[in-house]
Design a protein around this nucleic acid. Structure first.
Lengths: 127, 127
DNA sequence: CTAAGTGTATTGGTCTGCCCATACAATACT
DNA sequence: AGTATTGTATGGGCAGACCAATACACTTAG
């Protein structure tokens, strides 16, 4: 789960780290209260600067996934189902809004996007 | 149509310019063969460097919306309905794929995205 | 109390995207 | 031809994102 990163990827290192942990928490692989590797440990393991790990942890903290306690460590947070699901919906809304904004800039309308979404997801969208 | 730009926007100036023209072409306000303002004219009008306008025009050229002819000017291209619509579908697919990739990185699944899309568009998505 | 381990803060280097400035090359009009 | 008007090409400055380096402050174990 904390394998080496892809330094050639356009995705920033701190983001790769954050994503891995985020999905692990979302998938239940990391339960509430679990201690994450220390900043230095993980940095050494990933061949990365500690500050980069910190950036990842801070992002996760801002999202409410973990809590950093100085001198103690970084721990997975308890997130209630209700809060979590509303948070996910919020993120989804943000992503969709961004995409719709992009689409508008390109002169695409909603139907074309909805069509593409349904195709990509293999979900019935218009019915 | 060539009003002043929003220099405080996070959207690059060249992109704002390109978008305006792109949507004007898509909406049929600018017909095939129409001459666009010269690089310098538009630059002066928008209080912007000519090179910035060039960047916008080159982007539109790459997308097949306009043709630049040295010494003559920049003109709106003829784009067949079939080619245009397939091009639009392609763009829509690209946008959706990008968003889905982002969603995956955040641990969101397709249903959540589809749900958000339907809400934002006010379109029936699941039915 | 001390030492080892933890997160925190500040700073600087590197790279990329954006915009500008200037000189160049081709076309069109007279 | 000549001149004005057009796009073209190259290089520079600036800001922001990303990552690293180093010194600091707090907590815990012994």
């Amino acid at each position: 789960m904390f394998n080496k990163l892809d330094s050639r990827s356009p995705i920033p290192l701190y983001d790769q780290i954050a994503t891995r942990i985020r999905v692990a928490v979302a998938a239940g692989e990391l339960r509430s209260g679990t201690a994450l590797p220390s900043v230095r440990q993980l940095a050494t393991r990933l061949r990365v600067n500690p500050a980069t790990v910190v950036q990842a942890y801070r992002e996760l903290e801002a999202e409410g996934f973990v809590a950093m306690r100085q001198g103690a460590g970084t721990f997975v947070c308890e997130v209630g189902m209700a809060k979590r699901s509303s948070e996910r919906a919020k993120q989804a809304r943000r992503l969709v809004r961004n995409m719709l904004g992009e689409a508008a800039r390109l002169g695409l309308d909603g139907d074309e996007i909805a069509e593409a979404v349904s195709r990509e997801l293999g979900v019935k969208t218009h019915e």
